[in-house]
Design a protein around this nucleic acid. Structure first.
Lengths: 109, 109
DNA sequence: ACTATAGGTAAGCGATTGCTTACGAGTAAA
DNA sequence: TTTACTCGTAAGCAATCGCTTACCTATAGT
């Protein structure tokens, strides 16, 4: 059985540089598999396999259009990474962190 | 030859939940290997191996004190993660992102 | 000098990763 | 209806991961 929403899968998914680059490419716009594969040395099936890992992690969605499949970024799924790293923000920028916390408190309450 | 400062090693290092937990524990204070291992089910050598990966990634440093080795967090080494994830911040908080950019511009110039 | 403790490291293992090539299904174009 | 194109998936593979147990060195305590 597949357990969705596993935070670990997100971190594992972004651990490979090719998968981070795929996400970076999808920031601009949706892309077909071939359009993505054009940016890589590796074979097209290899890109497909990376896309499946991203899909399983919920970091992208797939939309079929004719014989193409367009992949779209789901940036909200990166939230666990952002939340985890935010624990450490005070170490490199106390001032900004306090400001952020102030703003977030203001929004939540 | 070991190529230091490889961003990829950082993402790989934090991809394992045990290693993220080790870092989380080291936020509070430095810890010896046994002090860390006490928080895990796995054997002490397994923890040592995780620590070596974190050490190779530069995410921790080691300080020998008597027969103990104390590990200390090097939070600056998480910067690549923070920078990468910050590309996506606008997706979940446009307002805060613009404010951050404004502040960073103000600091750099 | 013994004994105990802290912790690194090697060997070995099963599982997983990351790629390749080969093939098949589905859609589009001729 | 052929032919071409897009893409997923299976099989196979070498390499790496994550763990264990066994063993070693170094320091501390008696």
């Amino acid at each position: 059985m597949v357990t969705p929403n596993r935070e670990s899968d997100i971190f594992a998914a972004i651990s490979h540089p090719a998968r981070r680059r795929i996400l970076d490419l999808l920031v601009e716009t949706d892309r077909s598999v071939n359009a993505l594969a054009g940016d890589f040395q590796m074979s097209r099936p290899a890109v497909s396999q990376h896309l499946r890992i991203l899909l399983n992690a919920g970091l992208v969605t797939e939309r079929r259009q004719g014989r193409e499949r367009h992949y779209r970024l789901v940036p909200e799924r990166l939230a666990p990474v952002r939340e985890w790293i935010s624990h450490y923000e005070r170490f490199w920028d106390d001032r900004l962190q306090r400001l952020q916390e102030h703003l977030l408190r203001g929004e939540d309450q």
